[in-house]
């Protein structure tokens, strides 16, 4: 990757891709993410072993997907031997937010940045990595992103492996409590913004209410959990977009 010649071409590459220092900064900034991911992916590893996935399968899932909500929801589909269409729709809707984040990130990249680096950064667009990247001052250098990604994914994959391995030998009561980890993480992501935005607060409350109705109401409860999430998301987000459209100036 690194050009040994000091040609102007090499300098340009260095400018747009960043330096080894950016990589180290990324690694440092991702330490809290790594720790958080360790806890949550540990829970994922346990859940995956519960439905009969092997340690290797669990690790591959985490390494190839790096998406907490998507992976947890997929376990349900896999356990039920659900259809690929349902899995695709579910991932599409649950992870659709990543396309918004990718769009925002694209505005922070050097316009001359090559496609390969763009593809590299794409691998690690998660709620947390996006949060740190978008708050970074100035341009976003791929080397910085790679630092964030390597450190975060290390925690994500390691936790998955530990959870999948330990799931079988851990005391039932501890496993029971770790089931809360993923929801604790979701709450930590969505709840703080409800304090600053009334619209987001109503979105969260409406989505939880509607999801409860779909879970327990006769007839509606027949709908699988995957489609329930898809329907609730589309209805609530579309209603919110009509009732409380975001301000035109969107570079926060």
């Amino acid at each position: 990757m690194e050009s040994l010649s000091a040609s102007h071409y090499g300098d340009y590459e260095k400018m747009s891709a960043g330096t080894i220092k950016d990589f180290r900064d990324g690694c440092r900034d991702a330490i809290p993410i790594c720790l958080g991911y360790l806890a949550v992916s540990f829970a994922f590893g346990i859940e995956s072993s519960k439905i009969g996935m092997s340690v290797f399968q669990a690790i591959m899932t985490s390494l190839l997907n790096v998406t907490s909500a998507g992976q947890f929801s997929a376990l349900d589909v896999i356990a039920r031997n659900g259809s690929y269409i349902e899995l695709i729709m579910l991932q599409l809707i649950i992870n659709l937010r990543y396309s918004l984040m990718s769009t925002a990130l694209s505005q922070k990249l050097d316009t001359g940045l090559g496609t390969l680096h763009r593809l590299g950064i794409s691998y690690g667009v998660t709620d947390e990595i996006f949060g740190v990247s978008i708050l970074k001052q100035g341009n976003l250098y791929p080397m910085y992103s790679y630092g964030l990604i390597v450190t975060s994914v290390f925690g994500w994959v390691l936790g998955t492996g530990l959870g999948a391995t330990a799931g079988a030998v851990m005391p039932a009561r501890i496993i029971s409590c770790l089931g809360l980890a993923i929801y604790g993480m979701f709450i930590a992501i969505i709840i703080p913004d409800t304090k600053t935005s009334k619209a987001i607060m109503y979105v969260v409350i409406s989505a939880m209410t509607l999801s409860t109705v779909f879970t327990y109401a006769p007839l509606l409860k027949e709908i699988s959990s995957g489609f329930r999430i898809i329907i609730v998301t589309i209805v609530v987000a579309a209603a919110a977009a009509v009732i409380a459209p975001v301000k035109e100036e969107s570079h926060e």
Binding site: A69, F72, S73, I93, I94, L96, R97, S99, L100, T103, D127, L180, Y183, F186, I187, I189, I190, D193, A199, I200, V203, V204, I205, S206, A207, M208, L210, S211, T212, T215, Y216, S225, R228, I229, V232, T233, V236, A237, A238, A240, A241, A244, P245, V246, S250
Partner: peptide, 20 residues
């Protein structure tokens, strides 16, 4: 833009409750 802005909150909220 608005729809995409609200998607993460709606999805994660729906996944969290009542499943939690």
């Amino acid at each position: 833009k608005s729809f995409l802005h609200y998607v993460p909150y709606a999805t994660l909220a729906a996944m969290t409750f009542p499943a939690i």
